[in-house]
């Protein structure tokens, strides 16, 4: 009898401690997702009246929207171009860095991690500077080269690098 009472008390404590997390999680994650889902069945401009149109939005997007198909293909391409080779590179670098005889491990590790901790905006602007088409400040032009997918490559690089190196390094 006493033990069930104690267990109930422990349950209460857990719920009190977890309550703010659950409330906020439901209010700011679950509810917006559901509202998004509901809106997807309506014709809605962000204000004014909502008009129920059923699956119409989905049909239009999946069949009639050229942008949608094009951007889906682009996403897949970027995924292939970035994830596959960068995983291989990250694995090779991690294996090399894992060797006993390598000196300056800290330096290499820090520089390899750096893209991961920088913001997308900064990187994008630096790359726009480097790969600018305008002749005046495009460093890449100066070096006589091309690029287009490269910035994205770098981002993906950073993420995969982080995981693999983090796992294998000692």
């Amino acid at each position: 009898m006493q033990s069930t009472g104690r267990r109930k008390k422990a349950q209460m404590d857990v719920f009190v401690l977890l309550a703010p997390v659950v409330i906020v999680f439901v209010a700011f994650t679950i509810v917006p997702f559901l509202i998004s889902l509901i809106i997807s069945f309506f014709k809605y401009t962000g204000y004014g009246k909502m008009e129920f149109v059923g699956l119409n939005n989905y049909i239009i997007t999946l069949t009639g929207d050229a942008n949608f198909t094009r951007s889906t293909i682009a996403t897949l391409l970027i995924f292939l171009v970035s994830v596959v080779p960068q995983n291989l590179i990250a694995l090779v670098l991690a294996l090399i860095l894992n060797n006993r005889f390598i000196k300056l491990k800290g330096l290499f590790r820090a520089v390899f991690f750096m893209p991961y901790i920088t913001s997308g905006i900064s990187l994008a602007i630096v790359f726009m500077g480097i790969f600018s088409v305008k002749e005046i400040y495009g460093i890449a032009n100066y070096m006589g080269s091309l690029f287009g997918l490269e910035p994205i490559n770098w981002f993906a690089n950073a993420d995969t690098m982080y995981i693999v190196i983090g796992l294998i390094l000692n």
């Binding site: 590179i89 090779v92 860095l97 060797n99 290499f108 390899f112 893209p115 630096v126 480097i130």
Partner: peptide, 18 residues
């Protein structure tokens, strides 16, 4: 090994240097 590492050091460090 060192050659590969330095190559990628340049590769990653270059944007920050620029």
């Amino acid at each position: 090994c060192y050659a590969v590492l330095f190559l990628f050091l340049l590769f990653f460090g270059f944007p920050f240097y620029m």
